[in-house]
Design a protein around this nucleic acid. Structure first.
Length: 387
DNA sequence: AACACTGTCAACCGCCTTGAT
DNA sequence: CATCAAGGCGGTTGACAGTGT
């Protein structure tokens, strides 16, 4: 039916914010919290619509925003997550807590997208523009594999978003007592990547190779996602409810700061998961379940044996019961690859990317590109600020 | 110095989702 | 179930700055 713009009232200011307006907004939120955005402008004495105030706060005035140049690590993270999640900037932003979705989106559009394009890589699909080069060698199947994982992640993000919302509701009154600054809570988000990059080695140490991927985030208060592969069953997605008869990858809550996988959820948490479990309005989740079933075949397409357990270590190494993501590139870092190629290719870029795909040098770049993503996903950067 | 072109990014717009009624 | 209000998200715009000619 459509909705009239929220800013169409006469007298409401649009355009760039002045320092005075910023000060008014900051002062009000610091004292009262933002509460209802629609009601805020009048209370704060601003001639703006609530939407504009919210945007100014979340994208600029929030005290927990890191501004300035993106680090190589952040670039890597953005590219990885974009390959997995697509243009879901808010989801990507949850993994870069000090960056806003708007900032990430801008950076992608102005820097990273162009850089990938110059490399002959479709920034939308993250596939080489001349995909024929890679067909049949397992690279594109690895990409499909990533896509499945992305669907899992999408479904899980939806669920975690629910958790955040409900958690916020529960804690709202408490926050007020503590002096609500309006600062958003830390993202209740740990994901497959975090599990891979940060906690796999921990979770498998001294536990006899228990097939659970426990993401451990001491700085996060949320229940963490646990990826469990039953020994003889294909992985399926569940929502942290252990009594489901379906064969599932279980996302089981675990207490942060503890290395123990926790199968018992926090009080009331199960209810939070129920909408997710029985979701009828999250098509991605349902699709994720369906695709997770086909994921097994994808794994087999990659010559992966699932007869053993799927552990973090097994993903990092090849062998029986282990997943091997093809030829992992050597020491060349992904961002280095991008940076190097961006310079080289920008000099030789004649505007016709399709030509580049025909060169053997270029096909190597394309292979390296996917190898890089897979390698990064597999790697466990101990110095990563994110994981 | 002046102009054109390009890049950057804050802000807006329109649509979607969610929750209340 | 329908409707509405509100918040959130992603795409797009436009002002400004920087660079090239």
């Amino acid at each position: 039916m459509g909705r009239s713009p929220c800013c169409d009232k006469v007298g409401l200011k649009k355009g760039p914010w002045t320092p005075e307006e910023d000060q008014k907004l900051l002062a009000y939120i610091e004292e009262h919290g933002h509460g209802s955005w629609r009601a805020l402008p009048a209370k704060a004495g601003l001639q703006r619509c609530g939407k504009s105030c919210r945007l100014r706060w979340t994208n600029y005035l929030r005290p927990d925003i890191k501004r300035g140049k993106f680090s190589l690590q952040e670039e890597q993270t953005i590219i990885q997550l974009h390959a997995l999640l697509g243009n879901r900037w808010s989801a990507i932003a949850t993994h870069l807590p000090k960056r806003t979705d708007n900032e990430i989106k801008n950076y992608w559009n102005t820097h990273l997208k162009k850089r990938l394009a110059k490399m002959g890589i479709d920034p939308v699909t993250h596939k080489p523009k001349n995909d024929a080069l890679l067909s049949g060698d397992g690279q594109s199947k690895s990409a499909a594999n990533l896509s499945h994982m992305a669907q899992w992640e999408s479904a899980r993000l939806e669920a975690e978003a629910r958790l955040v919302r409900e958690s916020k509701l529960r804690s709202h009154s408490l926050q007020h007592q503590l002096g609500n600054s309006g600062v958003p809570m830390p993202p209740r988000s740990l994901d497959i990547l975090k599990g891979w990059n940060g906690a796999w080695s921990k979770s498998t140490e001294g536990n006899g190779g228990v097939p659970a991927v426990t993401a451990i985030g001491s700085d996060l208060e949320s229940p963490t996602s646990t990826l469990t592969f039953s020994e003889n069953a294909p992985p399926v997605l569940t929502a942290g409810v252990g009594d489901n008869s379906m064969r599932m990858i279980e996302f089981v809550g675990s207490t942060s700061g503890s290395s123990e996988t926790r199968a018992v959820k926090e009080e009331g948490e199960e209810d939070n998961w129920k909408p997710f479990e029985n979701s009828t309005h999250v098509p991605e989740y349902k699709e994720g379940i369906e695709n997770s079933l086909s994921f097994t075949s994808s794994l087999h397409d990659l010559s992966i044996s699932m007869e053993g357990t799927w552990t973090p270590e097994s993903l990092r190494t090849s062998g029986t019961g282990h997943i091997h993501f093809g030829n992992v590139m050597g020491d060349e870092g992904f961002t280095d690859l991008l940076l190097n190629n961006s310079d080289d290719l920008s000099l030789s870029d004649g505007g016709d990317d399709s030509d580049k795909g025909s060169g053997s040098e270029y096909s190597e770049d394309n292979k390296n590109y996917w190898n890089s993503i897979l390698n990064l996903v597999n790697s466990s950067p101990s110095d990563s600020p994110m994981f």
